[in-house]
Design a protein around this nucleic acid. Structure first.
Lengths: 234, 234
DNA sequence: CCTAGTTACGTACAACGTACGTAGTGCGCT
DNA sequence: AGCGCACTACGTACGTTGTACGTAACTAGG
């Protein structure tokens, strides 16, 4: 209980290599890549300390030389995939650039479906996150506003992307894991809700479900949400 | 492996009481209340099957007669606190009503700080969730738009509230669990980021942090985000 | 009344994060 | 040059988790 971390212990503040002792067998990039590979292939829940160590080919407890807590492993994973962001020269049209950023982030999250779950609490300040943030701010150079407003815009766009793609992924995984089609799922949901709604206590809900019977166009929903958020910033 | 649930197994579709066998010692409301009490007092991670059973005064495995999986216990918790929503007669000004809804949900989440974590994947269709949804739609009666648009508005407001209050809570819990003040926290973060920014690779980030040195007004951020979202809907 | 379905609960298991102890290794200092 | 210490590596072990399973008691429907 004595000398254990009287400091935030952000992993990015501790150096990867101190110079003393034998050279580490793996880099942080190696570890992050292994964890990302597992998460992409088998889901986030398959990312355990034992499994990652096995993927690297070392003992379980050796991982703790690189990563003090599992939470920091998650941090490494988020930073690794944040490096996949393509950073272009701003076009001069900040609105178009932010839409492009949002679509790219959405694609990134669909490539790594575990990302929304890790991002939803709060995203930190990893190296690649800083580069991404700086790029967003550079896209917003033509947007006449104090930096506080620009940061709020970036946070809002990121929040909306995380929320909506998280929903898309949850929906997709539910329909994939279950042994029936999306239409049947939809029908079953209508059937259950129909029973609730039949009581007459929810007339507007009933009208809503009667209005749009088909499956929801998730991409369209995302696009409209994004447009509305940007509209709110004028 | 044979007869185990070839159906979604939404907990709300199974009756609370079938009539056969001894009468259950507890109601779903009892169980939900116990779990909520624990989560409010000791955090969501303290809500384990053993702990809830202990709070009720029954054996651990007896809980599984009421709740097939832990996920369903979460569902019960969300429904229970959703019942705390105050549902008023719509004022005729849908914008004002939605702002009131959002503030009330925010207050609810601050009262039950584990809510954003449970809501972020997707919120289901529990009885009280349906009542809440119907209330939102009734507030939107003066809003001339198809129900699809109204549903998107409600979803967006809920998403923003969840995201932002989730951030507020994460920030608050970080400063509470750590043995230094918010100012020191802020200073430490500036110090760490300052080191990164000092390289000169992030000029706009540097300018941003130079601009607003004080602590962030989270309530103001929330208020502005909400206003902007509603502005996006005209 | 009987029997089938339900409740109650103790035992048990696999999997998790990780504390701890020990052995080996190589940089920095004297 | 060589000593020492900080670091790496890793096996063992502990506490905790969700929950499968078996058994005993009980109550409504035929």
């Amino acid at each position: 209980m004595a000398g254990r971390a009287a400091v935030p212990e952000v992993i990015w503040s501790r150096p990867e290599r101190t110079g003393r002792g034998p050279r580490p067998a793996y880099t942080r990039a190696d570890i992050a890549a292994a964890a990302v590979r597992i998460a992409d292939a088998e889901g986030l829940d398959a990312v355990t300390m034992r499994r990652v160590a096995g993927e690297l080919g070392c003992g379980t407890m050796s991982l703790y030389n690189y990563v003090p807590r599992k939470e920091d492993l998650y941090e490494l994973m988020m930073d690794a995939v944040s490096g996949e962001h393509e950073l272009w020269e701003p076009s001069g049209d900040w609105r178009a650039d932010m839409i492009r950023v949002a679509h790219q982030t959405r694609a990134l999250m669909h490539r790594h479906t575990w990302l929304p779950r890790l991002m939803s609490p709060v995203y930190g300040f990893s190296p690649n996150a800083l580069r991404y943030l700086e790029h967003c701010l550079s896209c917003l150079d033509p947007f006449q506003a104090p930096y506080g407003t620009k940061m709020e815009l970036v946070a809002m766009v990121n929040g909306v992307v995380t929320t909506y793609v998280g929903n898309e992924i949850a929906t997709a995984e539910r329909t994939r894991s279950l042994p029936w089609s999306a239409d049947e799922e939809n029908a079953a949901r209508i059937a259950y809700l129909g029973r609730q709604v039949a009581s007459g206590a929810y007339p507007r809900l009933a009208a809503s479900f009667a209005e749009d019977a088909g499956p929801i166009d998730l991409e369209g929903v995302f696009e409209r949400a994004l447009t509305r958020v940007l509209d709110g910033f004028g």
